[in-house]
Computed example of a mutant assay.
Amino acid sequence: MKAILQPAMLGGLALGNRVAMAPVTRSRAGRDGVPDDLAAQYYQQRASAGLLISEATNVSTMSAAFELAPGIYTPEQVAGWRRVAAAVHRDGGKLFMQLWHSGRVSSYALLGGAAPLSPSGVNDDLHLLQVYGMLRNGQYTRIAASPSRAMEREEIFSAVRAFGIGAANALDTGLDGVEIHAANGYLPQQFLSSLVNRRTDDFGGGVENRARFLRLVIESVMLSFPASRIGVRISPFALYNNAGDPALADTYGYLLRMLEEYGVGYVHAADTNAWGGVPDMDELLSLVRANYGGFVIANGGLSPEAADGLIRDGRADMVSFGRQFIANPDLVRRIAQGGPYNEPDPFTFYGGGSRGYVDYPALAA
């Protein structure tokens, strides 16, 4: 049997295989951020994955990089996710929710006229920030990022509490765990980045201070879930949303050792640059394995064959797939028999209805 099809244990959960569904933004939740019955169908179709990780889910009204993304901060959103969790569990699946705060990656247009929040109000790179919205004509497209403002201390603690409330709400839905989105240039990575975080208080400066925000977020989330049911997604090499660090090895070495200290269930190592055809997977996994001894999920532009090799060689414990899972709801079965694979339609990735969402065909029985 292929290594990627072998069972695994994660946080006391028995996973049927080592194929994970990556958190893939689909922007179909409506303006109230409530996942609907189509979302329940979408996740249920993919329940054969060893682990499903939900699309990035806003923990606050001040998080809005993609319009129409779901949230987890209102009773209606909680009720919607409860239906999703029940649908996945009916088919034997395991579902973690990715908790998300986009920080400075947003727009006045998506925040009711408010300025996006950031560690330091750095705004000389707005053209590099990826913000998306629905136009009046129904087309979903990239829009201009708006200048952010530096967070007051109480706003930092409020954002930390928002992650904690999101985790408590996720627990209430019956979900199996949560993943903290500390990758792709969003708020936790903004605090980690010495380029974006120029604060002079105890949330800026040295790496211990820059990691404090994520440390507090983890502790807030641990009020609802044990550390073994919490994952953290990181993308140290990512150019996406411009939150890099010139002392990358030192920053992420410290961070990974911190995650080891807390005993988090997994590190989700995202090779975001692979999207642009410049993969960093070898360096990324070497960095993670040198500083963290726990469960590792690898992500980023990997074929099923390459993914199987990473697991067989012990470089990763699981591999997550994004676009492949969009187009192939029965991806695990297709991997088992070596294909064939449906091709994803990028024009239906974001926004819209059932087309390109729940209508990709499964293999004939």
Rank of each mutant, 00 (worst) to 15 (best):
I180W: 00
H181N: 07
A182R: 05
A182W: 05
N184E: 15
G185D: 07
L187V: 07
L187E: 06
L187A: 03
Q190R: 03
Q190P: 03
Q190N: 09
S194T: 10
L195I: 11
R198P: 10
R198F: 07
R198L: 13
R198S: 10
R198V: 11
R199A: 04
T200S: 07
T200A: 07
D201F: 09
D202L: 05
G204M: 00
G204T: 03
G205K: 00
G205C: 02
G206H: 14
E208N: 12
E208W: 10
E208I: 14
N209M: 02
R210W: 13
A211L: 03
L214Y: 06
R215N: 03
L216N: 01
V217G: 03
V217W: 11
I218Q: 04
S220M: 02
S220P: 14
V221F: 04
V221E: 02
V221G: 08
M222T: 13
L223M: 12
S224G: 06
F225R: 00
P226R: 00
S228I: 08
S228D: 07
R229I: 07
I230Y: 07
G231F: 01
G231R: 00
I234M: 03
I234R: 02
I234A: 02
S235D: 08
S235Q: 12
P236T: 01
P236D: 05
F237S: 04
F237E: 05
F237K: 06
A238N: 05
A238G: 10
Y240M: 04
N242G: 07
A243S: 10
A243P: 06
G244I: 09
D245R: 03
D245L: 09
P246S: 14
A249Q: 15
A249N: 15
D250M: 06
D250S: 13
T251D: 05
Y252M: 04
G253Y: 13
G253A: 15
G253F: 14
Y254K: 06
L255V: 07
L256H: 02
R257V: 04
R257F: 09
E260H: 04
E261Y: 10
Y262E: 00
Y262W: 02
G265V: 01
G265P: 01
G265Y: 00
Y266A: 02
A269V: 11
D271L: 07
N273I: 10
A274E: 08
W275R: 15
G276P: 01
G277V: 09
G277M: 12
G277I: 11
P279E: 11
P279W: 13
D280F: 13
D280Q: 14
D280R: 12
D280K: 10
D280N: 10
M281V: 03
E283L: 15
E283Q: 15
L284Y: 11
L285S: 08
L285V: 08
S286T: 05
S286R: 11
S286E: 13
L287V: 06
L287T: 10
L287G: 12
V288P: 06
R289G: 11
R289H: 12
Y292V: 15
Y292H: 14
Y292F: 15
Y292T: 15
G293M: 14
I297V: 14
A298Y: 11
G300M: 13
G301H: 10
L302C: 09
E305V: 15
E305Q: 12
E305S: 10
E305F: 13
E305D: 13
A306W: 09
A307E: 09
D308L: 10
D308E: 10
